[in-house]
Simulated scan of single mutants.
Amino acid sequence: MQKIILYTIVIVFSFLTKAVAQEKSFEQQAKEIATNIEMITTEEKNALKKEVEAIDFKVKEGKITAEKAQELKAKIAQERANNIETKVAIEEAKLAQLVQDKVDGKIAFSSSDKKDENLKKKTISILDISMNNDSIYKNSKREYRTTSQFVFAGGMNNLVTDGAVANSDFMYQRSAFYEWGITLKTRLLQNSNLLHLKYGLGFQYNMLRATDNRIFVDTGRETVLETYPITVKNSHTYFKNVYFVLPVHLEFDFSKTEEKDGKKIFKSQQGFRFGLGGFAGVNTNSKQFIKYELDGKKVEQKIKADFNVNDFTYGLSTYIGYRSTSLYVKYDLNPMFKNNNIDQNNVSLGLRFDFN
């Protein structure tokens, strides 16, 4: 029943997204999603805290034993974790739909839209994880040395096999990736705005759609592509890996430095910038989705297994762009599968948005 409700909400959102796409910019909608994710986590954690306090009070009054209290705490913690997973899944679906609409040209993005300024100020304060950034916007002539950003990226994804991505076994346009997270950006030099250290936390979603009606199969020794006996729906048949990652970049920001009353005022992400760095993380889950028709009936399969996918990932990434928008490339240095005879490394190319 919970899944039915979830899917219903996602479908309804898809129609609503298309209806308002012409009225709201990509930036506005992405920030609204970021706000929702933050509120979900905060509300569930606060609710869990109150429930734990109530259990501790019962122990203090002698109504339940300490052992029973631990059992109850574990149960409600799992329930709250499930709530977060379910609700955040809805927001992830919104992100996926949003980036698809952006790729299809249904949403215009304008980082210089002055009408969005109040929205930017409100949203960035919600995403802040280490300081209160409201004062940054209350005093436009002041810039903290460390600022926070909501990051979203999306584009094409594929595998490098034998050092090449040409003649791939996977569809170039249909194989996609997206990534979201929160970063902090610290100016490294006292009197220069050029160098920054950018670091944070995020999630990467790498999806592969194989050619020639094939799917991944774990043979026990290797994970290989094999032809599926039934014709599958290409748009709904794919392999997905999800990673929790820690990205770190050295960013060169060429924003102009202002001066007022003999004092330098540093502004970030107001001009050209590029970053060089990498990421490291862990695989949180691997799933294969298969959809086809059999005897006039639509059949959907979702297979969750390890598929011999490496538990850890690490790689290089770089971006170059203007203000909040950049061209983004990332490459996994370790192969996707553990024991395959031929190493295959994930590579992604797309657009990246850093909402400062």
Rank of each mutant, 00 (worst) to 15 (best):
Q100D: 08
D134N: 13
S110H: 09
N36A: 11
I37Q: 14
A30D: 05
I40P: 03
T42Q: 10
E67W: 01
K102E: 06
K75E: 11
L127I: 14
V88Q: 13
I90Y: 08
E53D: 15
T86S: 11
K73M: 09
A19V: 00
E67Y: 05
Q29E: 09
K45N: 15
I40N: 04
I37E: 12
F150V: 05
N118V: 05
K87N: 07
F26M: 11
I126A: 03
K121C: 00
S148P: 08
K141A: 15
L72E: 15
K18Y: 10
V52D: 10
A21P: 00
D101W: 00
N36L: 09
D101R: 03
S140F: 06
A66Y: 03
E79T: 12
S130G: 15
G154C: 01
K115D: 15
A77S: 14
G155H: 02
N83C: 05
Q97V: 07
S140E: 13
S140Y: 04
A66R: 06
I37K: 14
S112L: 13
D116I: 06
E38A: 14
E27M: 01
A34K: 00
N82D: 15
K24A: 03
T123H: 15
E117V: 08
K24Y: 15
E27L: 10
D104E: 12
E38K: 13
E27H: 13
K138I: 01
A108V: 05
K58N: 07
T146N: 11
E92I: 04
I126R: 03
I64H: 02
Y137M: 05
N139T: 09
E53K: 08
A93V: 00
E71A: 11
R142A: 14
E71I: 10
R142I: 10
F26C: 04
I107L: 11
V52N: 14
L48N: 09
K60Q: 11
L72D: 15
I33L: 03
A108E: 04
E44K: 09
Q22T: 08
K114S: 14
E67A: 11
K141W: 05
N133D: 12
E23Y: 09
Q100V: 03
E79N: 12
A21D: 10
A21R: 00
I90R: 04
Q28S: 10
T147M: 06
D56K: 13
K58G: 03
I64C: 06
L119Q: 10
E44Q: 10
D101M: 12
L119K: 12
F152W: 13
K94N: 08
